[in-house]
Design a protein around this nucleic acid. Structure first.
Length: 310
DNA sequence: TTCCAGGTGCATA
DNA sequence: TATGCACATGGA
């Protein structure tokens, strides 16, 4: 009996040790230290098109620091300093950013699923440090309505203007406006932030969100959720997939945009295809519950190959 | 000047 | 259900 207890305790200790060894980070007061960069590259994470409110800080890129960025999410912020062998996430909200950067997920195992697809293997090799962020749902919905037929630079500019004009002043940055704050913005004011024809979609969808309540969306199953999202103005199949992927961390979707059409026609078909539904169906059934990851590696790879700068 | 960007809404057939 | 056009705007 006593031997069993000792064995059990040793097993527990071994598990704790094993888990801590596998963890890619350790926490300190106001800091997360990423000790293994094989699945973490801040440049790739932020510049792969999933998020828009970040700034590169070249003035901090000196000595051993290779990349320096500031990220703002909701009403929180972090400075990320990455060197050759480690990265530091400096923030007052350590737990928030552990979840935000998906640090407890095992990306090594995720990437192993993609070695049999030649193109994806190259894409994963190139974007080895990509992680799918756990972003604020409201911010994702607004961001991707603005993303329609738009470019990343202008999406960033519009979102920053919306935050500066209507978000809470947090000292040296602005929070993303709450739903209540967003509901006070009219179409003209959105247009002044450079969102163009999407202004009316934003006003309409924000009203709908006030009515249906954001938290009620989380009670729906995947199909109901997508139908509900598409019922809002400015949200079609592609934007809905982005909201599911980046706002709900649903990895079974594969948003098809202009870049995915290029990828599909370059690597996955002999006959040129323009039908987004056909492309989406093929890629979702090919990558199944890992589709979201696959999409993000491929999206980043293709854009980088073509030399697109954010 | 023209084309394009993490598309969608709407009218028409 | 499928197709085609309009929609803002700034950079290449």
């Amino acid at each position: 009996m006593q031997i069993d207890l000792i064995k059990q305790n040793w097993q527990n200790l071994f598990n704790i040790y094993n888990n801590s060894m596998r963890k890619i980070y350790i926490t300190k007061p106001d800091e997360i230290l990423i000790k293994d960069l094989s699945c973490f590259c801040i440049k790739q994470i932020l510049e792969c098109g999933q998020v828009f409110r970040f700034t590169r800080l070249p003035e901090l890129e000196k000595n051993e620091v290779v990349f320096a960025y500031r990220i703002i999410s909701k009403d929180k912020t972090a400075i990320i300093l990455e060197s050759d062998n480690q990265a530091k996430i400096l923030t007052k909200d350590v737990n928030y950013f552990i979840n935000y950067f998906d640090l407890d997920a095992d990306y090594e195992s995720i990437k192993e699923n993609f070695v049999e697809d030649e193109i994806l293997k190259c894409a994963v090799n190139y974007g080895y440090g990509i992680r799918i962020l756990n972003q604020d749902l409201l911010e994702v919905i607004i961001s991707f309505i603005i993303s329609a037929n738009n470019n990343i630079k202008r999406i960033q500019k519009s979102l920053n203007l919306i935050c500066e004009r209507f978000g809470k002043n947090m000292g040296d940055y602005y929070a993303f406006p709450s739903l209540k704050e967003l509901s006070k913005i009219n179409e003209q004011q959105f247009r002044e932030c450079g969102v163009g024809f999407r202004a009316k979609y934003l006003v309409s969808t924000i009203n709908d969100l006030i009515e249906c309540k954001l938290e009620n969306l989380t009670k729906l199953n995947n199909d109901e959720l997508k139908s509900k999202l598409i019922s809002f103005k400015g949200i079609g199949p592609k934007v809905a997939d982005c909201i599911l992927l980046f706002g709900f961390h649903d990895m079974s979707v594969f948003p098809v945009d202009t870049w995915v059409i290029k990828i599909f026609n370059a690597y996955y078909t002999v006959k040129q295809e323009r039908n987004v539904k056909v492309i989406n169906k093929f890629l979702v059934s090919k990558f199944k519950n890992l589709a979201g990851y696959a999409q993000q590696y491929l999206f980043y790879y293709k854009r980088e190959l073509e030399g697109v700068k954010i």
